[in-house]
Design a protein around this nucleic acid. Structure first.
Lengths: 341, 341
DNA sequence: TTGTACGCGTTATCAA
DNA sequence: TTGATAACGCGTACAA
């Protein structure tokens, strides 16, 4: 056995070349599966690689190619929210699948503080990734600005109101909220309330807008309870508040399934029967929906597809598909009618 | 305004040096906050940096420093599981907080297929990260092997049985399971069953072992239902199975809170009162525990602390704290006694 | 305090 | 088909 190296020092292309009795150029060609290499040389190189335990340096490589082979998924959420947002997980799965197929490494980055913000910008600028997928960017986001400024291939999931020039993908929250609220109306509910969440972002705002629109004249602001989080707890608190303010409420649109689940538990404990006394609908069609009793009517959101398409967008941009693709892409949603309303 | 650059070509140190009328060396010193730079030069450089829009290349930098400033969190789970495992989220939060403090960028990587496996190994070998925290590694894991082989600073969360030489951190699943099962016994339950999960990994195995041990002679294999996932659905299925096999069961230890929640819903629908007819306990003390009705007795697992300590371990190793720290660290758990048993 | 020159490990461009 | 040699952008001894 030749030349055992310590764990610390790495073998270089030069080492391989020496071992194989060839030049760096040839070795590099073999490593990159390029043509114009004799079978004999190819084999000699592969053998030498094995013997010296060579692995190539990403740093050196990306210094010259200006490519890293990695794409970032930036999750811009308070950490609490990340935990039980079912969409994030599904988006992650879709994204990872597509990138994996393209042999790109997905790295997920959480932005949770101002300090994170700065560091992430540095990270992106540094060239560690060739592109980025950004979840739930808020207005005035430093990361968003940096991405635009440096022209990094990117796709936003959700509609960033102030990022004019970047590609994005999302669903029509407003239309979906309108649709599911309408059916609540059509089934004869008279006093319909909403447990609104995430009013600091477009998805939350749009769901409220769709709800309001569907009710038209019947809309009563006293029947709206707001909470920053799309969580079970938000549903518990919101429903209590609503029952308190309007005991005669007989229909509720919750901004997410988790919220709806919290609401339904409160209703049960308050002795109200769902759907007899009150109809409840949610949003997401996440695992929560089937956990509810009765199962929840909700809006199916194609989270996984969202992730897949976002990944494709970024890959296309990286490949330099002269970036005039459709800049905004809206995926369809579907109302899933179950027993809760 | 001088020298507007296109988005594609980056300014280099040389450009800054030219702009400031100084040498690359001086510019580099300013950039790295090193001493021996005149205030005047420092200011000139900073001004020049702004003018040419300089950002330094991570690739070039890490090529020479052999540091990337990033640490990977490797999540080795089927994607489904990731979604509702509350511990992963908390570990992530703890890890991110500590690394953020140390100005290191955390990048989370999911390993979900054989293809992912290979690519991740490449990624690690390439030098994109200075260290790694590994969640739920299984035996014979390619990523684990690669990490050991290349001597990458790392810390495993959970006890990998075949990684002898690496540092790890975890809880004593067996003792915790023993403790909570014992109290089930002490409160007079006669026919105690377990909804076991994740028997392909140490945490699942150890919880079953602790359960068995606590029951001693009373242990009845017919009262154990197994499921690969630590999920709500697993609890639903498992509890149905158990009720079917042993209608006289009056105590259940679920391998996680989510499992317990599923079990409790089945019990309610079957008309059994908790804790009167049957006592139920879980594991994790996650958000699920308080969502149950009555609230769930469970084992508090310090997931966030786990993440923090793992991060510290890795940071210490990166700093080269001649890696003879304690190689295994077991964090204490605590039984939280609520109303469900 | 500042500038010079070399090395980090690859890929890319030629010439052989 | 192969081999020299020049980038790539930065850090860092060492000299000035």
């Amino acid at each position: 056995m030749s030349d055992v190296r310590t764990a610390r020092s790495r073998a270089t292309i030069q080492d391989v070349a020496d071992e194989a009795g060839l030049s760096r150029g040839t070795v590099s060609r073999v490593l990159n599966d390029e043509p114009y290499v004799s079978p004999k040389a190819r084999e000699a190189v592969q053998e030498a690689v094995r013997r010296v335990g060579y692995v190539r340096s990403a740093a050196a490589r990306s210094l010259v190619t200006r490519r890293s082979g990695a794409v970032a998924l930036i999750v811009h959420e308070p950490s609490v929210q990340v935990l039980d947002d079912p969409n994030i997980g599904n988006i992650l799965i879709g994204t990872n699948a597509v990138l994996s197929e393209a042999d790109q490494q997905l790295v997920t980055i959480m932005v949770d503080s101002a300090r994170d913000d700065e560091r992430v910008v540095e990270y992106l600028r540094g060239g560690f990734v060739d592109g980025a997928i950004v979840l739930s960017a808020r207005d005035g986001d430093a990361v968003t600005r940096a991405i635009e400024e440096m022209g990094l291939p990117a796709c936003f999931v959700g509609h960033p109101t102030d990022a004019a020039n970047t590609s994005w993908i999302g669903i029509d929250n407003r239309a979906a909220a309108f649709a599911i609220t309408s059916r609540l109306v059509e089934t004869g509910r008279q006093r319909i309330g909403m447990l609104a969440s995430g009013l600091d972002r477009d998805s939350g705002q749009d769901r409220l807008a769709g709800f309001t629109e569907a009710l038209g004249d019947r809309f009563d602001p006293a029947l709206v309870a707001g909470n920053p989080l799309f969580s079970y707890t938000a549903g518990v608190e919101g429903m209590r508040e609503l029952l308190d303010r309007a005991p005669d409420v007989d229909g509720v649109f919750a901004a997410s399934d988790a919220v709806a689940a919290g609401a339904m538990d409160v209703l049960h404990r308050a002795g109200r029967s769902v759907p007899r006394d009150i109809g409840v609908v949610g949003f997401d069609d996440s695992a929560w929906a089937l956990r509810c009793d009765p199962p929840l009517s909700t809006v199916r959101q194609p989270a996984k597809t969202l992730g897949e398409q976002a990944a494709r967008q970024v890959l296309a941009q990286i490949a330099g598909a002269d970036d005039e693709g459709p800049h905004g892409l809206v995926l369809p949603t579907e109302v899933v009618w179950r027993a809760s309303a």
